[in-house]
Design a protein around this nucleic acid. Sequence first.
DNA 1: CCGGTTGTTCAGCG
DNA 2: GCGCTGAACAACCG
Length: 243
Amino acid sequence: MPEGPSIIILKELVTPFAGQKVIAVSGNSTLPIDRATGKKIIDFKSWGKHFLICFKDFSIRIHFLLFGSYRINEEKEGTPRLRLSFKNGFINFYACSVKIIEEPLDDTYDWSADVMSEDWDPKSARKKLKRAPAMLACDALLNQDIFSGSGNIIKNEVLYRTKIHPLSKIGSLPPQKLSELIDEVRNYSFDFLKWKKAYVLKKHWLAHTKKTCTRCKGPMQKEYLGTTRRRTFFCPVCQKLYD
DNA sequence: CCGGTTGTTCAGCG
DNA sequence: GCGCTGAACAACCG
């Protein structure tokens, strides 16, 4: 569920409810979610992996983390964390993190960091990366302040596509390689979106979960790298270490 | 049936 | 008070 492109799909699926009044709210969330009852949804937005339900005076932020899910006009086993009903249907969110945001979203979110956004600004990402020369490439690609929406799959695929070893230091990447990295996060995210919609995402993985390198036919390496020790798949031959 | 994971937050430590 | 690390949480697949 979680990476940025999946949230774009959700946003598209809920468009029938944009502008609709919430006629009932339920769920096992401990927050005062009933506040949405009777209120009109102004818009649905997203920032990376955050799904945002916007009302006039506040917003509800949904984060699916690793295991969250949703159903639209469809039930599923278990109590939803949040359920919003409309006269033309309902949305259920399960096992997700719910947060209420009081301030205007423009005050909370740096839209230029969102890889899928029309406000995405590669120059801004570059500036942030320049400020963190010691950061490892595998950590940079999971950093939501720099690449909001990028996740572990996107990380592995982008490093493989750009032939950058996950343990490369950001400050050691030649300028053109750095540009390539930044551009490829957005490029691959849109491929991810296209393939996910067509239910063929896994088929197109070149690195993630792979045992053999499609380029050199050598073995792929699997290690738990970076500050978060996330699963990292890479080809030690084709992906160059910039140290 | 158990182990593992497309993620994040927070307590506890030095 | 800071940065870092590991635990906790969650549900479903293989």
